[in-house]
Computed example of a mutant assay.
Amino acid sequence: MLITDGILERGLEFARKAVEQVAAFDSFSEDNDPWGEHDCAGLEVDGQRVLWKIDYYDRRMEFLSPNPADPKVTCRVLTIMLSSEY
């Protein structure tokens, strides 16, 4: 998991809330998840727009995974950021 400086600059309590809300997120729809991959979305935390996304890297974390569905060749990284940091 990567939490950006913008999130951390708002304090540990804000960062904790952001992580908890991302972990609990299940409001996927055609609007925010048009491909049905459940690998990115946005939400509000204390009035701030927060985005999260999951990237799929190879096991050495040098390139994109050759097969994101295969955990044997994939390392997933969750990034939580302010929308202004995207």
Rank of each mutant, 00 (worst) to 15 (best):
E20V: 13
E20M: 10
E20I: 11
E20Q: 13
Q21F: 09
Q21Y: 04
Q21E: 15
Q21T: 13
V22H: 05
V22Y: 07
V22L: 03
A23K: 10
A23Y: 07
A23V: 08
A23H: 11
A23P: 12
A23Q: 08
A24E: 04
A24T: 04
A24H: 00
A24K: 05
A24I: 03
F25V: 08
F25E: 14
F25N: 12
D26G: 14
D26C: 09
D26I: 02
D26E: 09
S27Y: 01
S27K: 14
S27D: 15
S27T: 12
S27R: 14
F28C: 04
F28E: 04
F28W: 14
F28M: 06
F28P: 04
F28D: 07
S29Q: 01
S29C: 11
S29F: 09
E30Q: 12
E30G: 08
E30H: 12
D31H: 12
D31K: 12
D31Y: 11
N32L: 03
N32W: 03
N32E: 07
N32R: 00
N32G: 00
N32M: 02
N32T: 00
D33R: 06
D33G: 15
D33L: 14
D33P: 11
W35N: 14
W35F: 15
W35G: 08
G36C: 03
G36N: 02
G36K: 08
G36R: 00
G36Y: 02
E37R: 10
E37N: 07
E37P: 02
E37V: 01
E37Y: 05
E37C: 09
H38N: 10
H38E: 04
H38Q: 13
H38C: 12
D39I: 08
D39S: 08
C40V: 04
C40D: 11
C40M: 14
C40F: 11
A41S: 04
A41C: 06
A41L: 05
A41N: 12
G42I: 03
G42D: 09
G42A: 11
G42V: 02
G42M: 00
L43D: 03
L43V: 10
L43F: 02
L43H: 05
E44G: 01
E44S: 09
E44Y: 05
E44A: 10
E44L: 11
E44H: 05
V45T: 01
V45H: 00
V45L: 07
D46R: 10
D46T: 07
D46S: 14
D46C: 01
D46A: 15
D46W: 10
D46Q: 13
D46V: 02
G47A: 02
G47E: 06
G47D: 08
G47W: 09
G47Y: 01
Q48S: 15
Q48W: 09
Q48L: 13
R49Y: 06
R49Q: 04
R49K: 10
R49F: 06
R49S: 09
V50L: 03
V50P: 05
V50Y: 01
V50R: 00
V50F: 02
V50N: 02
V50W: 01
